[in-house]
């Protein structure tokens, strides 16, 4: 068992464990801060999938941007949200959560079944890439290639997504403005 494999299992365990904690805890603040851990461990998984630029982007945008936004929303929406949470019974599995748990577990079983059936390592194009030995190797640097591809092959999606991002931010600013003359 190589070191990369050990690291992969450690990271995967942290990701799934902290995500389960996020899903199961009653304390909203704790769940948000455990979500930090999930995102960091996911960045580690991206590094193990040899996508270091995506991992850095994940840390910068998710941890630096999205989580701070979520914390802001949590703080601005007052302490009533906490009261709602504390009213719930503190049993680990309460009866009204049962359908959701059932749905998630059954869906997980279906997906695992599908994944083991298709046997992703043996799909045609992946086999071809492995046989011609052109998959990304750990000692190669892909960032230059990503930049060139982003500005040539994927230029249209890049521009479209930049316009979409601008529209979304203008919309968010418009939604959260104070109404003139209102309370």
């Amino acid at each position: 068992m190589s070191l990369a494999q050990v690291l992969f299992y450690v990271m995967a365990f942290i990701v799934v464990g902290s995500a389960l904690f996020v899903a199961s805890t009653k304390n909203l603040v704790r769940s948000i801060f455990m979500f930090f851990i999930t995102l960091f461990a996911l960045a580690g998984l991206y590094v193990l999938a040899l996508a270091d630029f995506v991992a850095i982007t994940q840390i910068v945008i998710y941890v630096g941007g999205i989580l701070v936004l979520i914390l802001f929303a949590f703080m601005l929406s007052g302490k009533e949200t906490l009261n709602v949470l504390q009213q719930q019974k503190s049993k680990f599995i309460s009866l009204n959560k049962l359908p959701a748990i059932l749905l998630a577990v059954l869906f997980f079983m279906v997906m695992v079944n599908v994944i083991t059936k298709i046997d992703a390592g043996n799909i045609g194009w992946i086999k071809q890439v492995i046989s011609t030995n052109t998959d990304i190797k750990p000692n190669e640097e892909m960032i230059n290639n990503i930049g060139i591809n982003l500005m040539t092959r994927y230029l249209l999606p890049f521009e479209a997504i930049s316009i979409l991002l601008m529209m979304a931010l203008v919309g968010a600013a418009h939604l959260s403005r104070k109404e003139r003359g209102a309370v």
């Binding site: 630029f53 995506v54 982007t57 994940q58 945008i61 998710y62 941007g65 999205i66 936004l69 979520i70 802001f72 929303a73 990503i146 982003l150 999606p157 890049f158 997504i161 979409l164 991002l165 979304a168 931010l169 919309g171 968010a172 600013a173 939604l175 959260s176």
Partner: peptide, 16 residues
């Protein structure tokens, strides 16, 4: 990368 950017846009609008 595009999906990460889309997630950022989604979050901003959803929080507003």
């Amino acid at each position: 990368l595009f999906a990460i950017i889309l997630a950022a846009a989604t979050t901003a609008v959803a929080l507003a």
